[in-house]
């Protein structure tokens, strides 16, 4: 009975919830779909293509007005031809300046999807990137950050590729339910199609808003340019300062091997590469 059920579940795919926010165009500042969240949805669509029967639900917590609606429709237009499930998204309505975390946590706990996909950082507001972690802590689910792709989903275990700096990848196995966050390493999002975006609807769920009182007390200002770090020369005399300013950096004077056989030279290089752990 049990394996049978699992088989069925596997065929049916999994429930994926994608959390989307409203982005901000870096130059004009207009509302748009957020870059990372769109990549998250792209990832969910990829899972659906791999695993037929996967249900994607989109979730946004915030206020409903014209500009945010236009931005949110940007996501809804991404699911052309996929058909199921994306004709609408859930909007947890709350006024501007409310804390999104309690509302999302409550909704996720109630609907219990198996996989939650979020962007790493919002493009508006605090943008601290704490939300996925807060949800993970709240729900007690494992969290994997900086996802590159989902390789397979099997028996409640998902195999993922995590992006590391320097273009490296790491393979992880995570037990569902889990939260994964995506950043620039995930595949780029497809374009949004206008028609499906227009036709889609919003399922509005009212919430009991909790004002983010701490944020309201902070002082927000457009980002100043950070001061460039100066090369500080700690020299007691004018002569030393002049020398530091005028001379080419001499380097620390590494080891120079002259009059060695190619084998000895290669040996020394090999030792260094081993020490630095770059040979795989």
């Amino acid at each position: 009975m049990q394996p049978d059920l699992q088989q069925k579940q596997q065929q049916q795919g999994i429930d994926v919830a994608v959390l989307v926010s409203i982005g901000r165009h870096p130059t004009t500042g207009r509302a748009r779909r957020a870059e990372q969240d769109a990549r998250g949805l792209e990832l969910a669509l990829a899972i659906e293509a791999e695993l037929p029967g996967t249900r994607i639900s989109m979730l946004h917590a915030g206020s409903q007005d014209d500009s945010s609606e236009a931005a949110l429709r940007g996501y809804l237009g991404m699911a052309t031809g996929v058909g199921m499930g994306l004709e609408s998204m859930t909007l947890l309505e709350q006024p501007e300046g409310s804390d999104a975390i309690p509302a999302l946590a409550k909704h996720l706990a109630a609907t219990s999807p198996q996989l939650v996909i979020t962007g790493a950082r919002a493009e508006r507001g605090e943008g601290s990137g704490l939300l996925p972690y807060a949800l993970a802590e709240h729900l007690g689910w494992p969290l994997v950050n900086s996802l590159a792709s989902v390789e397979k989903v099997e028996n409640g275990v998902v195999t993922l590729l995590q992006a590391l700096p320097r273009g490296q990848r790491r393979r992880l196995k995570v037990r569902l339910p889990a939260i994964i966050s995506v950043d620039e390493a995930a595949p780029a999002a497809r374009q949004s199609a206008f028609g499906p975006a227009r036709r889609a609807t919003f399922a509005i769920t009212p919430t009991t808003p909790e004002a983010d009182s701490e944020l309201a007390q902070w002082h927000l200002a457009p980002a100043r340019k950070r001061p460039k770090r100066l090369k500080i020369v700690k020299a007691a005399s004018a002569r030393d300062r002049f020398k530091a300013a005028a001379s080419k950096s001499e380097g620390k004077g590494g080891q120079v091997l002259t009059d060695v056989t190619p084998e000895q030279g290669a040996e020394a290089i090999y030792q260094l590469l081993k020490e630095e752990d770059v040979l795989r």
């Binding site: 380097g251 290669a266 020394a268 090999y270």
Partner: peptide, 21 residues
């Protein structure tokens, strides 16, 4: 001057030795 380790010699031979190693 910049290098931490410099080997003076013919590139072809040294690379070949390194690859062999």
């Amino acid at each position: 001057k910049r290098a931490d380790l410099a080997v003076i010699g013919d590139s072809t031979q040294i690379l070949a030795a390194l690859v062999a190693m």
